[in-house]
Design a protein around this nucleic acid. Sequence first.
DNA 1: GGTCGGCATCTTGCATGCAAGAAAATTTGA
DNA 2: TCAAATTTTCTTGCATGCAAGATGCCGACC
Lengths: 257, 257
Amino acid sequence: MTISDDTTPLAALLAQLPPPEPGKRKGHLHGNTVARLRNLIVTGVLAPGTKLNERELCDQLAISRTPVREAIKTLIQDGLLRALPNHSAVVSELDLDEVVALIEVVTVVEGLAGELAAKHISDEAVAEIGMLHYRMLLHHARDELPGYFEANKAFHRRIVELSGNSILLWVWELLALRVDRARFSSNLWPTRWRTAIEEHQQILDALTARDSARAGQALRSHVRNGLEGLVASLRAKQTAAQPETERGKKQGGASLR
Amino acid sequence: MTISDDTTPLAALLAQLPPPEPGKRKGHLHGNTVARLRNLIVTGVLAPGTKLNERELCDQLAISRTPVREAIKTLIQDGLLRALPNHSAVVSELDLDEVVALIEVVTVVEGLAGELAAKHISDEAVAEIGMLHYRMLLHHARDELPGYFEANKAFHRRIVELSGNSILLWVWELLALRVDRARFSSNLWPTRWRTAIEEHQQILDALTARDSARAGQALRSHVRNGLEGLVASLRAKQTAAQPETERGKKQGGASLR
DNA sequence: GGTCGGCATCTTGCATGCAAGAAAATTTGA
DNA sequence: TCAAATTTTCTTGCATGCAAGATGCCGACC
């Protein structure tokens, strides 16, 4: 399965899983399983190209095939897995072209969110965004990466929510999955902190001023900047690891043996 | 189940289904089921608010619960069904607010598609778009509604494809489901034919000229115009049918009995 | 008469069983 | 010795079974 040595491929990995919620009072195995697998994929623990084996997964997750199968179907729809013609599923590779494509889409989506949000936003909501911004600053000051990213995402998400457009939020969530995955894949990010924070400030200003056009513009350039940095780092990483590239594709399946 | 009399609710409806593909050589029950149910929902045969009963569905589709359950999960993700807290699924109502929200998103999505497509588009592809445009004209001239809509959708879809942005296409497909559903729901559409065709011509011109900005602009206004007409007609229909509004919610479930 | 509690039924969630298609391994023919 | 074919094993798709919540009904109590 590509990570660590091949003797205990999934076993070790799945140990790192968020334990399936202590008080899992029945009836949520599906959702749990989706969340768990999604996590593994987004964080890169399950490497692109890894072939999923239902039975193996069942053993490791200690559940039966039914919820696993359903979760797989779900993740295929999300684009995190890809269905092979033979009906098996592999972790989809995160294509560089796809990430580039993602940039364009996320840019217009968040841009629109900014425009719409600026129109309706309440004082309270502005304050809330400000709070999230400063929360991010706090984590930045403390050099806390995970917190920083979480706050950053919350900032963006909240703006999309405040657009008041449910469809936009829905689409954004779908896109965010892929963005997160790309983020995790390139593990260099600290570079743009300073500018990112300045850009957030501008977004906040535009929202405060209820300047729709400016908010949209600020968000678009911020998102584009950020994601293009991401692509650059991914590209660098990929060319650096060129010889390794061919590796992660063929195993899985028989790897347990 | 809201349609026809309650004695043979699903039975009659499902008879209208596209027969499950004669040569269904095993292994595609899931996809088939999704497609069939999706069709029923998009075309409004399964009315918003209808509660789905797994066993009933199984009986009617003559398959077991497993693929039905999977299909339901899939459609929930697509937003065509909604999961109740009790774990049952109902056909999601198509909220007017949601359609309005849809407008905004589809507008920017297709606008972006136009901009991107205009940049890369080949002569061959321009010709193809032209062909689709004239195919639509043909159906228009013949007053063939279904053909008209199909050609119209193909025209738009192809432009999104030609954007070369796989993510954009993915998102567009998701949105198109909901748009189609709204279209079917308001069954008045012939009004804008003339202008729609003119707008298509402008889009085609802009693409031919490889004028990215103009193509984007043309698509945005075309999409917005079209969908706003749709909303207007939906709104009219809804207020007209006000007394009926409360009806389609409680039945289903026990309705077979 | 209305409401609350207990019982019967229904509906769904998850597990498991079986068979068909795919992959792998072994044998057999050149 | 290599390759093709056959057999064996694995993997998945679908069906079914069982048990736990959820729902609805009815009677009893207030």
